[in-house]
Write a protein that binds this DNA or RNA. Sequence first.
DNA 1: CGACGATACCTAATAACATTAGGCTAAACC
DNA 2: GGTTTAGCCTAATGTTATTAGGTATCGTCG
Lengths: 193, 193
Amino acid sequence: MARMGLTTQRVTVAAADLADEIGFEGVTVSAVARSFGVRDASLYSHIKNVHDLRARVAVLALAELAERVAAALAGRAGKDALVAFANAYRAYAGEHPGRYAATRLQLEPEVAAASAAGRHAAMTRAILRGYALEEPDQTDAVRLLHSVFHGYVSLEGTGAFLNTPRAADASWSRSLDALDMVLSNWPTAGRDR
Amino acid sequence: MARMGLTTQRVTVAAADLADEIGFEGVTVSAVARSFGVRDASLYSHIKNVHDLRARVAVLALAELAERVAAALAGRAGKDALVAFANAYRAYAGEHPGRYAATRLQLEPEVAAASAAGRHAAMTRAILRGYALEEPDQTDAVRLLHSVFHGYVSLEGTGAFLNTPRAADASWSRSLDALDMVLSNWPTAGRDR
DNA sequence: CGACGATACCTAATAACATTAGGCTAAACC
DNA sequence: GGTTTAGCCTAATGTTATTAGGTATCGTCG
């Protein structure tokens, strides 16, 4: 009958670890309770419900990701910054697939605001300081970057690149070269060719 | 006691429709059975289990998406083709969020092979015929395109672009301009700047 | 130190979903 | 028209989510 010393924080971390092991969909109240050796009902003193649990994992992952990216970005500029950001992003997703999947959870506005979601966008904008982009080009570029990063990582995660022999790393690297080129020569007009 | 006339095909379509209405996660054996007014167990003559049901929705969606994209691509080349492909892709995802979500399901290799997944890649390559790209650049470009399309649509679907006032359509359009530029001047070396 | 209140965890109970086994009956096919 | 097939049902079991209410352990204060 030793107490397990549960707290919302510990439960959240356990859920996140579980997500990385068995996938985010596998993050269930029962599974987390099992990992602590306690009854399902015992977790409800610490979390509101499954959705709350998953949302907490999402917020945790968002914060961790933001931290990693920020660290990678420190002291860099231009293409260096772009590559560092992108690699940190992809590395996190690769090391923590479950946590990363959690970041795609649809968070309610209040939660999202309180979390590091905004910090993410802020840092993406930081990259762009190296490239001379005004609004609204900057917003467009942020969206493009985020799309590429998320899209690539997401497709890679579901094995979409396994059919072709070409290594995923190589394509990633070339995609970053391409992005650097786009950002350097952002198409100002739009009507041509 | 009128028979419902269920078949695997009808069950799959009903599941797909349900997915578009309430989200792909909501596609459950119970819910589909309910939509037909039959018992849960009755569906098991037509599907193997939930995963089978969801996989069928995924295959259906992949085929529909491939068809839409192929139609849009007919008779176009170069940037026209790129834009038509991209818009067809995004439109499908917008009209059928549940079906689109299903396409991200991890399919077992045999199922994926039998499905239209390969056709998708083939068509992406068709776009690239308008741009002079050799292997392995072509593979890299296909991955980049797919990443942007999927990433954008996915982020848009989870409301990631709602914070900023800039319209999602506008950024999309500019991103396509950017992609056209990248494909036209694909970075051959990689080390510069 | 012993009482007290807060907190951590438990049992019990209900409900939705997934799945299997076995039965009944409407339809289709000579 | 009788038989086979296939479509649907009931019954039963296991997992997960969630609530209500109980017990035990901990820190704290008199």
